[in-house]
Design a protein around this nucleic acid. Sequence first.
DNA 1: GTGACGATAATCT
DNA 2: GATTATCGTCACA
Length: 204
Amino acid sequence: MPVLPRAFFARDTVTVARALLGQRLVRVLDGHRLSGLISETEAYRGADDVASHAYRLTPRSAIMYGLPGIAYVYFIYGRNFCLNVVTESSGQPGAVLIRGIQPETGLEIMRPRRGFVAGDRPGRRNDRGLTDGPGKLCQALGIDGQMKGADLTLPGALFIEEGQPVEDAQVEVTPRVGVCGDDEALGRPWRFLWRPAGATAAPR
DNA sequence: GTGACGATAATCT
DNA sequence: GATTATCGTCACA
């Protein structure tokens, strides 16, 4: 499968957030290939978006003003990492937060990383909750601050390759979660969920 | 099944 | 010193 080219990311941030649904996130960890299809994203823009780190240009947010297709990883709430992909042309800020993936390969590596021990709670939670949150998928895939700045358009330790198309009928669009305040930008529909037919209630 | 709440540290003002 | 793009656990139904 081909890796997504930089031009894929050098577009409007909201467009990229939608287009990333169904694409494959791949992490090579200790020789193992861990992968999953992207199932949930959120767009974060620039000066028009108070919820975005790039609302202002600071040392931390500078990466969002840089080359598209680069990983932006940050640490939050004292315990979690979140993975983003930089979007838009250089000089124009933007990034997409990867909020969830549908795991494909390397489950046996992900489970212990997430504290899913064999024999634990028998009969319950068949991998539910393994990679369905931004902090959770970073834990499962071993993504931390070291990955900040990685080029996701090159097939190295972390990259994104072509996955499968996702129909509009299977996409749910909602306001972003976890952002607080009452600015007008916060209510905009910049969260995208891939909801295959037959799926149950929305996560969180 | 849902909803509340505290942990905990980098980053910015 | 305030803020925060989350998670796990607990109570309750």
